[in-house]
């Protein structure tokens, strides 16, 4: 299929819009996640969503709704365990990863016949994006973008220095919880494009690429957005041109290619300058 023909199909148009939503959200949130050294949280929410999808397919209800509910409950559980210091943060996330995978595996084994559908959600499938999927993606994307725009400086403070943010009067726990909730939204938006197993790559790679090139926080966010959008668009185009190509995998491999390119560009541009002297 050539590109012009692909854009003539409704499914590809939906995939393109949904892909852009996923790229923008993952690239935005990814910067905060990477800089807070909490990349594992993306993995945790993604695996929870896998359990949620399996639950939806098992109960024959809309899987993205159940993915959203289970992801939200899981993030609340992670926040609760962290807040009450029941376990370390990594352990809380690890427990939720295990729960999501365990739930998914058990329901997949019990529910005969939906394993093929589940595979689409695991690795993404642009062919299966429905009008409902797209509506949900756009609605959730708007919520996430408004949240980030409103609380950008507070989130940056939280990311840079949590104690300092708290002392400034930032309600750290509430903001952190809200962030985890919008992260659950982001994962759900991205599932149909890259799949629940590859979402965390889209969260980590654009931000990691941007960090190679930018000196400023805003610059990092901007470059992350550009890298994320390029990766998703190229991945979608590649999977339109080569129909057997898995979109999610293609997007992730392109993201890795872009990351390596950014590392190379940083090397070419020179290493960190020496400390400057000021009077």
């Amino acid at each position: 299929m050539d590109l012009i023909t692909a854009f003539g199909y409704t499914f590809f148009q939906r995939a393109f819009i949904g892909g852009l939503c996923a790229a923008v959200l993952c690239s935005l949130l990814g910067v905060f996640i990477v800089l807070r050294r909490s990349a594992l949280i993306g993995e945790g929410v993604a695996h929870l969503s896998f359990g949620g999808i399996a639950l939806g397919l098992f109960l024959s209800i809309y899987p993205l709704d159940t993915a959203l509910i289970i992801s939200l409950l899981g993030t609340l559980g992670i926040s609760y365990m962290q807040r009450k210091r029941i376990v370390y943060s990594e352990m809380a996330i690890g427990i939720m990863i295990s729960f999501g995978l365990g739930l998914g595996a058990v329901l997949a084994s019990l529910g005969n016949g939906f394993n093929v559908d589940l595979f689409d959600y695991l690795f993404g499938s642009i062919l299966t994006i429905s009008a409902d999927d797209l509506s949900l993606s756009v609605a959730l994307s708007l919520v996430v973008i408004v949240f980030i725009l409103l609380f950008f400086k507070e989130l940056m403070h939280l990311t840079f220095d949590e104690q300092g943010a708290r002392l400034s009067g930032v309600p750290v726990f509430i903001l952190d919880l809200a962030f985890n909730i919008v992260l659950a939204f982001t994962v759900v938006v991205s599932i149909k494009i890259v799949g629940s197993l590859l979402v965390s790559a889209l969260l980590i790679l654009p931000a990691s690429s941007a960090m190679q090139l930018s000196k400023s926080f805003r610059g990092t966010v901007a470059i992350s957005l550009v890298v994320g959008i390029i990766a998703v668009v190229l991945g979608l185009v590649a999977s339109a041109l080569y129909e057997r190509l898995a979109t999610g995998g293609a997007i992730v491999l392109i993201s890795i290619g872009l990351f390596l390119l950014c590392v190379l560009l940083k090397k070419i541009m020179g290493s960190e300058p020496r400390p400057v002297t000021i009077s």
């Binding site: 800089l35 009067g169 930032v170 000196k215 400023s216 926080f217 990092t220």
Partner: peptide
């Protein structure tokens, strides 16, 4: 003793000082 990889300019960090409970969002 912040993360040396943290990408932020001097001005961006000083600007964080503007944040208070009264002006969230």
């Amino acid at each position: 003793q912040f993360d040396p990889l943290f990408p932020a300019t001097v001005e961006e960090i000083v600007r964080l000082g503007c944040i208070s409970r009264n002006n969230l969002g």
